[in-house]
Simulated assay, not measured.
Amino acid sequence: MVELPICDRAGNTLIEFRFVTEEELGRLVKRVVVPASLVVVIHAEAVLMMFDSRRRQWELPGGMRETGESPREAAVRELGEETGVHGVDLSFAAVAEFDLTKPGRREFLAVYRVRLQVVPRLTVNDEALDFRWWPPSEPVSEEMSPLDAEIARRVVRSSAG
C-alpha cells in the first residue's frame, strides 16, 4: 500500500480512500456529487482489470451514474455492460476521493467489491478491449492505472480473511 496522494500520467490524483458504511455513502451523496462507481472483482486473490478503449489502460470496471440511478445501481449496470458479469451480489467497500483533470474537478466515487468462486465468462466490447486477472502483490505496469491499482490493493487487503 502506498501513501496517498498518488497521481497518474494524466495528472489525476487519488487524494483519499475511506472505508465507510453504505449508510455513510448515502449521507455523502446528499451533500456532494458522487457521479460514478467502481467495482473490485476478486477471484483467487487476483483482481479483474479491463483494458479501457478510450483511456488505453488497464483499470477497474465501473463508470458514471445515469439520471436517477444510485451508486449501487450504477456499479451493477456498469459491471454488466463492461464485462458481461451479471447476477452477482456486490458489497459496498469504500469511497475514493479524486482531484481530476480535463476538466479540473474534485470527485467522489463509490467503490464496490465482489468475490467470485468461479472465473466468469467475460465479454470483450467497445469499452473493454481485453481483460486480465492482476494479483495486487505484483507491481503496477506502465499500462495500468496506478489509482485503480491502489484502490484494488486496499479493497483486497480489507476483505482478506
Score class of each variant (00 low, 15 high):
V114Y: 08
R18I: 05
E78R: 15
F19K: 11
Y112V: 04
R77H: 08
L25K: 05
G80R: 12
P139M: 04
S145I: 10
S53W: 07
A128M: 12
P146H: 10
E24R: 09
T21A: 02
R132F: 08
F51P: 00
E127Q: 15
I151F: 05
R154Y: 08
P103S: 09
S145Y: 07
R113P: 00
V88G: 01
E45Q: 02
M49I: 05
G84F: 07
R106H: 13
F17K: 09
S70D: 02
E23A: 14
G26K: 10
R55K: 12
L28H: 09
E22I: 09
P71H: 04
G80V: 03
F98N: 01
M64K: 10
E69I: 14
V33H: 14
A75P: 00
V156A: 13
S91E: 14
I6Y: 12
E97N: 08
E127S: 11
S159P: 03
V95C: 06
R132G: 03
V88F: 11
V118G: 00
R157P: 00
V40C: 15
V114I: 11
L116Q: 00
P103A: 06
L60V: 08
N12K: 02
G68D: 06
L147V: 03
A10P: 06
W58G: 01
R72D: 03
Y112E: 08
L147F: 09
V140G: 01
L147P: 00
A149E: 06
V88T: 09
F131H: 05
V119F: 14
L129I: 05
V2D: 03
E127A: 10
V76S: 00
L4N: 00
Q117Y: 02
A152E: 08
G26V: 02
R65E: 03
D130Y: 09
D8N: 13
W58M: 04
L129V: 08
V20F: 11
H86Q: 10
E22P: 03
E143G: 00
T83Y: 11
V40N: 09
A160C: 01
V41S: 07
V47N: 04
V155M: 13
E23D: 07
R121I: 06
E3Y: 11
G11P: 00
T83R: 11
E97K: 03
A36L: 15
P35Y: 14
E107R: 10
P135Q: 12
V29Q: 10
E81C: 13
S141P: 03
G87E: 11
F51V: 06
D8G: 04
V124C: 01
D148V: 02
R31P: 01
E45H: 01
L4Y: 11
S145M: 02
A36H: 08
E138L: 11
E24H: 09
W134V: 07
E150I: 03
A128R: 10
V33E: 13
V39H: 04
S159A: 15
V85K: 06
V85D: 01
E127R: 15
R113G: 04
E16A: 15
E81F: 14
L79H: 08
A75F: 07
A75W: 05
M49T: 08
A74R: 06
T83H: 10
L109F: 14
Q57T: 06
E81N: 10
S159R: 15
E142V: 04
E150T: 09
I42F: 10
M144L: 03
I151T: 05
M1D: 07
G68H: 04
E59F: 07
H43V: 02
T21C: 07
S159Q: 13
E66I: 05
V114T: 02
C7Q: 10
E66H: 14
V85A: 14
E59H: 06
